[in-house]
Design a protein around this nucleic acid. Sequence first.
DNA 1: TTAGGGTTAG
Length: 536
Amino acid sequence: MPDAAAGDVNSTWTLAIRAAADQGRPRRAVALYLSSLRSARRPCPFALAAVLKSVSRLILPAAHPLLAAAAASLHAHLLCLGLLDHPYPRAALAHLYARLPDPSRAHSLLDETPSRPPRGRAGAHSFLVSRNSLLASLLRSGDLAAARALFDRMPVRDVVSWNSMVAGLAKAGHLDAAIELFDKMPERNAASWNAVMCGYIAQGNLTKARELFEQMPVRSNVSWITMISGYAKSGDVHAASELFERMENKKDLYAWNAMIACYAKNGCAREALAVFNLMLKPHVWVMPNEKTFSSVISACSQLGDLRFGLWAEFFMGSVGIELDDHLRTALVDLHTKSGQIDRAFDLFRGLGMRDVVSYSAMIVGCGMNGKFNEAVSLFKEMSDAKINPNAVTFVGLLSAYSNAGLMEEARACFASMTEKYKISPSMEHYTIMVDLLGRSGKLDEAYQLIMQMPMQPDASVWGALLLACRLHNNVELGEIVASKCFELEPGESGYYILLGNIYSEASKWEKVKRLRKIMAERGLNKMPGSSWVQAA
DNA sequence: TTAGGGTTAG
């Protein structure tokens, strides 16, 4: 007779719930579990373990007020079902508790088990699982010493115990200790190799990680994805896409998401959308999730493609993907870039929790759309909420001041960014300041600011000043600045045209003629209808 | 097949 209390391990419900959890669809796993309860079957411990894991993935970020409530009610649920003593749901519950501000409940839950294994094969296995859970929990909470002590004390260890310890050491930056342990392992699987590979990637040593990847006797999907996302973080889009093409197994949702994110993060928005389209093709068909769409919307935003973005929003609605905070933030960005500031504000107000990223997206959006007052009050609001601004926040704030033509305020803001908030200005900050100074006629000050930059100014900075020279008809400085622009972007005819406009405004026709000749020699197109070309 | 490893926003 099957174990009536535990339910059928291989029931359709259990398989479906676990499949949803494994495929990274926690919401679906929870929904399926709730349906299974209605069918009046006894829940299976493995289904519950999957559900608990899904809940802890669903409630983000850590320390969310819902998390404590969810943990308590699921704890009671397990007690009612008599499944609290089963190692898998118990470990999953501990995982949930471990994400609370005070993770002590997690450890006490796992520590209640005896220090020696009970008799019988099932008992021994159950004991090993609960020890492994405690080990993982200690490692997650960063207590490396306690984890190591437990690991060394364990009477029996399996490949999971070893993997956890190796991964924990590697993640904490103790790569040498991790490798030492890895070398001693009696048995290894793909996860063991992945753990060390991860350690190298965390150190930024992609070469060593790749070496290990090529050496591995077996590679799991995780191995491929770890390597791909490693390259994505280091900006090596080419290496990432090469690996993606080479993947041996069927590409799962994680793999598609990693590749789309890689393109979207590294400014290859078109490629990101192409890969997204590919995963939707009938012969491929992998159902995207909210993580896919976060990257897709970001790509649309980079391209200013509101139409595709709106289609994606419609798609999400029709397949029941709910907007989480990441997605909302991506949509805020998309809508502000398309001038839909009211819709962006609606999305922003619907956020579960506002953080520096969402505030910055909204402030940048306000800055771009001339909503100076809103940008400033959002900045104040985030300061009151003790959320520290970062470089992106100041891009938004400075552009808001710049659009409003508020010179002194922008200057004060730029100063406080460096002095009060200790944020070193990036190229973008300098560009905004140079543009504002230049437009206000403070050409020398703008030039001085560029000269003081700690990094090599790029074409956007010089271009802003060149535009200002054109606006204020400054031939002398215009020539200096234009030469910098020509040097940095030799194929860009726009800078020649700007300088030409400056010359023709000053009636320097000889210089106009010479400039036209240089353009022709360099094979640059003249812009149709640009007055100085005709005037000459 | 159940513990461990991989994917998201400005």
